[in-house]
Nucleic acid binder design. Structure first.
Length: 574
RNA sequence: CACCCCAUCGUCUAGUUGGCCUAGGACACAGGGUUUUCAUCCCUGCAACACGGGUUCGAAUCCCGUUGGGGUGACCA
């Protein structure tokens, strides 16, 4: 693109030589037009490429979310590639789970999902192509083993625009260990601070213009003149070398979130691309698929940065453009360590099961490692898409904060349309035998009363007292509050009075009755509220007391209040 | 062990072209207020630039080092 622009500029300049001003103006207008054109025929394509081996991990789905957001923000395509080549571990159940989770979070893909197994033929073809080009070779490690196919990091690096020279290196070699140069690379040993040998291996490309010297400072080996022999299989073993001199080069790329990243070639090794059993390795498959699917931006976890240095070479050797990369920081557990299966709450399914709202989890995950730059936190999907900027993603790992997720979920819960809320709640309640799904009118009233104080769907287990007399009792609070002088007798008096339904005509009437009875028994206004609540619900928290009583009805309230003494006795006996 | 990466309140983060930062917001926590009760809401408080050098008139922001953490290291993805 840049090259084209320069050519264009030159062309226009030569045509309009007499008038540079016009040329410049025209150039900028054209450039602008080209940019707009490119925007409209967007070629941004990103993919989410999970291995379906069991549950969907929370960190994994975050990667999917960021890919999705990037695609939507850029007007590009979001693609799902199921990397199911691990036949042992990939199961149909896991794939179904993956779809379920993505659907739940509304991560809509723009093309039919692609299964990597269907692409496997191309991987081996690519390997053959690399061997034919001389960029890959067969090698068996150890004695008598089967040969695997290894990709050779290109030794001719000068023409590579993603490799640069860092400088001349001069390192001391450990005298006890041989310096070996063979077709599969170089093996040698450095000297540690304590004088011990530090064995190392690297690719041939890492040692440009290598020269080895002995104790007398005589050059005893040079790589370049022997390169041809080495590549055709010869192995040089130099035992008296004490120093190596070479030009160090490094691969580099601009990561959209981490900035420019680089790695010296002398710390890289040739890599296996086809196993000795003939199956392609992840690196090859991944690169081939990203190329064949024309992926423009690879957005993936932090744990892949090391792979990126190698994949860049593979893309190039296979004759493809290198895509742009963005490496997302990992999500860590409460103790700051990487999530493991044992941690709990590591899978998306756990959150769904606990009654979190998909949008809330989505919104929360979005805020892990990213922020819009202002103080907005609770945002609609459209707001997030509009604000999303991959370069604003942080490069440090983030911890899940269950409190904050819980709080955010509560906010979503509160503003959820009642009908949506009710249907979820009814589903959740269906699992309890005390729930009466037939009684829809009553159920609606209960749900309406409790919606604003529900932060998680699983909390509906506390609604039992609306349906059954066998509700949980907070023993400690009941002991404390019902044992006070006069409380039981006041509750009995109230029970008697409230046995007639006429007082349940309105909230106000009910309040006045309670106040009246309370006063008659020596309780100031409001002092009876907690004892009443504890008696009829077993808990000190809930909805507005009088609305609750109204819903429960005269018969229920009266009978529960009447057994206050029994309840107190029961919890005291414990 | 080698290489790569990261480092602001307990947690998520704002801060990114050095001065509007005696470091802002949110969650959590503590205290107070409104509400006869529950919840909501409001106010206040607590609390961080990992450490040590350097550059500079001035650094959370740039450079170096240390420490700590993470990733990767020939046939997992």
């Amino acid at each position: 693109m840049q090259c084209a622009s320069v050519k264009l500029k030159f062309l226009i300049k030569t045509i309009y030589n007499p008038c540079y001003c016009c040329a410049w103006l025209l150039y900028y207008l054209l450039k602008d037009f080209l940019q707009r054109f490119r925007m409209s025929t967007n070629d941004v394509r990103v993919r989410f490429a999970p291995s379906p081996t069991g549950q969907v991990h929370i960190g994994n789905i975050r990667t999917a979310i960021f890919n999705f957001l990037f695609a939507r923000n850029q007007g590009g395509k979001f693609i799902l590639r199921v990397e199911d080549t691990d036949i042992e571990r990939s199961t149909p159940e896991a794939i179904a789970k993956l779809f379920e989770v993505m659907q739940w979070l509304k991560l809509e893909v723009d093309e039919e999902p692609v299964y990597q197994t269907s692409l496997a033929g191309a991987h081996l073809e690519a390997a053959e192509k690399l061997i034919a080009k001389g960029d890959a070779y067969k090698f068996a490690k150890g004695e008598g083993g089967e040969e695997a196919t290894l990709y050779r990091i290109p030794i001719d690096v000068e023409s590579l625009n993603f490799v640069r020279k860092v400088g001349a290196q001069s390192v001391a070699l450990h005298p006890d260990k041989d310096f070996i140069a063979g077709p599969e690379g170089i093996s040698y040993a450095l000297i540690s601070k304590k004088g011990k040998a530090v064995p190392l291996e690297a690719c041939l490309a890492g040692f440009q213009n290598l020269k080895l010297f002995n104790e007398d400072n005589d050059c005893i080996f040079e790589l370049v003149p022997n390169l041809e022999a080495i590549l055709s299989g010869e192995r040089f073993i130099i035992d008296a070398a004490v120093r190596a001199e070479y030009d160090r080069y490094e691969v580099f790329f601009d990561d959209l979130v981490k900035g420019q990243l680089a790695k010296p070639l002398d710390s890289m090794k040739d890599l296996v691309i086809v196993r000795s059993n003939g199956t392609p390795v992840f690196h090859l498959a991944n690169v081939c698929d990203d190329a064949s699917q024309a992926i423009s931006h690879i957005i993936r976890g932090d744990d892949h940065v090391e792979n990126t240095y190698r994949h860049i070479f593979l893309f190039h050797s296979l004759g493809y453009d290198v895509p742009k990369y963005a490496h997302l920081p990992m999500i860590v557990n409460a103790s700051g360590k990487p999530y493991s299966k044992r941690d709990g709450d590591a899978f998306v399914g756990d959150f769904k099961a606990k009654g979190y709202i998909a949008q809330a989890l989505f919104n929360y995950l979005t805020l892990l490692g990213w922020s819009p730059g202002d103080d907005r936190e609770k945002m609609s999907l459209n707001e997030i898409i509009k604000a999303f900027d991959i370069t604003r993603v942080k490069s440090a790992a983030a911890q899940m904060d269950m409190n904050k997720l819980f709080n955010l979920n509560g906010q979503y819960m509160e503003e959820m349309p009642f009908t949506d809320f009710y249907s979820k709640v009814a589903d959740e309640l269906a699992q309890y035998d005390w729930f009466d799904s037939e009684n829809t009118g009553y159920n609606h009233q209960v749900a309406a009363l409790l919606q604003s104080r529900t932060k998680l769907f699983s909390q509906v287990d506390a609604w039992k007292y609306f349906y059954s007399n066998e509700y949980e009792l907070n023993a400690k609070l009941i002991r404390k509050n019902l044992s006070r002088d006069g409380v039981i007798s006041a509750l009995s008096a109230l029970a008697e009075k409230l046995s007639s339904p006429e007082y349940f005509a309105s909230k106000e009437l009910l309040e006045s009755i309670v106040a009246e009875i309370g006063e008659a028994n020596g309780f100031a206004n409001g002092k009876l509220n907690l004892p009443i609540r504890l008696t009829v619900s077993g808990s000190n928290s809930g909805a507005d007391l009088y609305e609750t009583l109204l819903l429960l009805g005269a018969e229920c309230v009266s009978s529960r209040l009447a057994r206050a003494a029994g309840i107190l006795e029961m919890v005291s006996a414990e």
